[in-house]
Design a protein around this nucleic acid. Structure first.
Length: 263
DNA sequence: ATGGCCCGTAGAACGGGA
């Protein structure tokens, strides 16, 4: 079973990249963030045509998440929950569903803008509530959990191209990393770090200053897996290929492969 | 190393992203 996450930064603009990527990488589950589409404009037909079922939740202009599941292996996700029942939120940042017996939560964690801003406060509260929701099994206690998405937190300095520049700034501040640690304390593991990885492995590169060319990036797109799945983890990687296309998303997909039955 | 890029909503700039 392959489970992936991708912040597409507008599904309208990136639909062709997504369809091409799914053709090249027929993953079983894919969580999308920043679709930036109202539900009426969600391209469900094209995604269905590509062999995927999809559950989604959008809003005008900002945010928006979706959960794609391969029809011939997983079928539609079951027990789908939009948002976090423990956190009243107008912003569409969370979707959860059961995929082949795994409770998969796809998250677009708030950016936070700047440490000590109102948005930063919202980010920390949002993360606290996410932790609470996941501690309850995200609506399906007893199933192994996967939490994937754009975390907008670089877990540690290995995940930052210039740790001195980013020290204590947004995405790297201690309170954010403490929230990340609490998610791990639920019994989740960063699948990426189960395997040897190249130094300076990132999943996001700024459009400005030729960030990708200089590999001036951050690793903020993660697939966390239940500790009980650790032995089943076969691989975890970031696919930089779509970041090289014309008009790319600023994020690359991250994929985790599990030895887990899908049919 | 933050003005500089990209996106959506606009129908010109601006908020937001990271």
């Amino acid at each position: 079973m392959k489970i992936a996450t991708w912040n597409v930064n507008s599904l309208r603009v990136r639909l062709e990249h997504l369809l091409q990527w799914l053709q090249d990488n027929p993953v079983d589950v894919l969580g999308l963030q920043e679709t930036k589409l109202i539900d009426a404009k969600f391209p469900a037909a094209q995604i269905n045509e590509a062999g995927y079922e999809v559950a989604f939740s959008g809003q005008p202009t900002y945010n928006g998440v979706a959960l794609l599941t391969r029809r011939d292996t997983i079928g539609p996700a079951s027990d789908v929950v939009i948002g976090n029942p423990l956190f009243e939120d107008e912003q569409q940042r969370l979707i959860t569903g059961t995929c082949a017996g795994i409770r998969v939560t796809c998250a677009y964690v708030p950016n936070g803008q700047a440490v000590d801003s109102d948005k930063y406060d919202y980010k920390l509260r949002w993360l606290d509530s996410l932790t609470e929701w996941l501690s309850q099994g995200a609506g399906a206690a007893g199933l192994p959990r996967v939490l994937l998405g754009d975390f907008n937190i670089a877990p540690d300095d290995r995940d930052v191209h210039d740790a001195n520049f980013w020290r204590d700034k947004i995405l790297c501040s201690k309170p954010e990393r403490e929230r990340y640690a609490r998610l791990l304390e639920l019994g989740l593991i960063d699948s990426f770090r189960l395997f040897d990885q190249e130094e300076r492995s990132f999943s996001w590169w700024d459009y400005r200053q030729q960030g990708f060319r200089r590999n001036a990036g951050l690793r903020i797109d993660l697939v966390l897996i239940e500790e009980s799945l650790k032995q089943a983890a076969l691989a975890s990687e970031i696919d930089k290929i779509p970041r090289r296309l014309e008009k790319p998303s600023d994020h690359a997909p991250a994929i985790c492969t599990l030895d887990w039955p899908v049919t």
